[in-house]
Simulated scan of single mutants.
Amino acid sequence: MGSAEAMVTARMAVDKKEEGNRVLAALGTNASKAVNQLYDYVIEEQALPFGRRAVERAAHSPAEIAAAIALVDGLVAPVAGEYRTMSLKEARLARLGIPSPSAEEPR
């Protein structure tokens, strides 16, 4: 393939773009590479890689989020050894791979 000669423009919510760019960076790529891979797939397969209709992410209200957290927190499961000494907040952050701010402070 030759050098880039055309530009594709798309419109989306700013927060979706920012979050998507963070995820793409974590995956070692960027929006241009991802769009190029999408076009390569569409050209080769004559289909979209995610079905006929893209599903828009639904916005959830604070009440829906609180209900989902309560549901998950209400599930009973054995606690893994590494989480036994953590607060609920620290465990949640650890499960998401986010360092806890209190992890830097001595206990």
Rank of each mutant, 00 (worst) to 15 (best):
A58P: 07
D40Q: 09
V55S: 11
A70R: 12
V55Q: 15
S100A: 15
L27H: 07
T9P: 00
E64I: 01
A91E: 13
G20T: 11
I98V: 14
S102V: 12
A6G: 02
L75G: 01
I98C: 08
E19Q: 11
I43L: 09
R11V: 07
G20V: 04
P99C: 00
G74K: 04
P101W: 05
D15I: 08
E5P: 00
G51E: 03
L27E: 14
A25Y: 10
E90S: 09
G2R: 12
I65L: 14
R92K: 15
Y39D: 09
K16V: 14
E18L: 12
G51F: 06
L75S: 08
V55F: 09
D40C: 05
V8D: 06
G28S: 04
E104Q: 11
E44L: 02
V72K: 12
M7D: 06
P99I: 11
A66F: 04
K89C: 03
E82P: 00
L27I: 00
L38Y: 15
E19C: 03
Q46L: 05
A70C: 01
G20P: 09
M1Y: 08
V76P: 00
A63V: 10
G51M: 11
L88S: 12
G28Y: 04
L38D: 06
A58R: 15
L48V: 00
R53W: 11
A6L: 08
S100C: 02
A80R: 12
D73H: 03
S100V: 06
A10S: 10
N21G: 00
S32T: 15
A31D: 02
E5F: 04
A6I: 10
E56P: 06
L75V: 10
A26N: 13
D73V: 06
E105F: 10
A47L: 02
A67C: 04
S61Y: 09
A10H: 08
R52W: 04
V76H: 14
V14S: 09
Y39L: 14
Y41N: 02
A47C: 03
G2Q: 03
K16F: 13
Y41E: 08
P106L: 12
P99W: 04
Q46F: 02
M7Q: 10
A34C: 06
R57N: 07
P49E: 07
E19F: 05
A6S: 11
